[in-house]
Computed example of a mutant assay.
Amino acid sequence: MTRMSLFNSPLMLGFEQFEQAIDRISKTASDGYPPYNVEKLADNRLRITLAVAGFTSDDMQVQIESNQLVIHGKQKDDQSRVYLHRGIAARQFHRSFVLADGVEVSGASLDNGLLHIDLEWPQIEPAVKTIAIRSAETSKSLELPALKDHGADD
């Protein structure tokens, strides 16, 4: 079965990277653990907050892999404890976010079971480029002069 693409139009050229990003998002969006918030701090700053109660900073890794922010978490199982009832499972997680070009992780902190990851990017003014439109008269005056045929008759 052929998959329909959002970017399958002949008017949408060069958007393959976006299509790949959407594929990655759809693969990782199925698991809801850990829950997270995305908060806008300023025009060029975001904060992602993940609820990671029970995890220490040594139990987690925050990495950038090919324009993806990837957070891994795995709790170490303490074999010295004897549980009469274990309702809180030692769980692992893998959460990823696709980052746009230019987005940088400015820091990560763990506070009261919440992992905060701060993102920022430079503010870029939109670039506008005007292309000159030449008329037929202008085009003729810019043409190169015809080269003479320098044959043996000269």
Rank of each mutant, 00 (worst) to 15 (best):
Q20T: 11
A21G: 04
A21S: 09
R24L: 10
R24E: 06
S26Y: 12
K27G: 04
T28D: 11
T28Q: 07
D31K: 10
Y33K: 04
Y33R: 05
Y33W: 14
Y36H: 08
N37F: 10
N37M: 06
V38T: 03
V38L: 14
K40I: 14
L41M: 04
A42G: 02
D43N: 09
N44P: 02
N44E: 09
L46F: 13
T49P: 01
L50R: 00
A51N: 05
V52C: 11
V52R: 02
A53Q: 06
G54A: 07
G54S: 06
G54V: 12
F55V: 06
S57M: 15
S57K: 10
S57H: 09
D59R: 04
Q61Y: 11
V62A: 02
E65V: 11
E65P: 00
E65D: 11
S66L: 14
N67Q: 12
N67P: 01
Q68G: 00
V70W: 00
I71N: 04
I71Q: 02
H72Y: 15
H72R: 10
K74E: 15
K74C: 15
Q75F: 06
Q75Y: 07
K76Q: 09
K76R: 05
D77A: 07
D78T: 01
D78K: 02
D78F: 01
Q79W: 15
R81S: 01
R81D: 00
V82T: 03
Y83G: 01
Y83T: 01
L84A: 06
L84H: 10
R86K: 04
G87N: 08
I88G: 01
A89H: 12
A90E: 13
A90Q: 09
R91H: 09
Q92Y: 13
F93C: 05
H94V: 12
R95E: 05
S96G: 05
S96T: 05
F97Q: 01
F97T: 00
V98A: 06
L99N: 00
D101T: 02
D101S: 03
G102T: 03
V103R: 00
V103Q: 00
E104S: 05
E104D: 08
V105A: 01
G107W: 00
A108R: 10
A108V: 11
S109T: 09
D111Y: 14
G113T: 03
G113D: 08
L114E: 07
L114K: 04
I117P: 13
D118A: 04
D118Q: 04
E120K: 05
E120R: 07
P122D: 08
E125Y: 12
P126L: 05
A127T: 02
K129V: 14
K129D: 07
T130D: 15
A132C: 01
R134W: 11
R134Y: 11
S135T: 13
S135D: 12
A136E: 14
A136I: 12
E137W: 13
E137T: 06
E137Q: 12
S139F: 15
S141M: 12
L142W: 12
E143I: 07
L144D: 06
L144H: 04
A146F: 13
A146E: 12
H150P: 13
G151F: 15
G151V: 08
G151M: 13
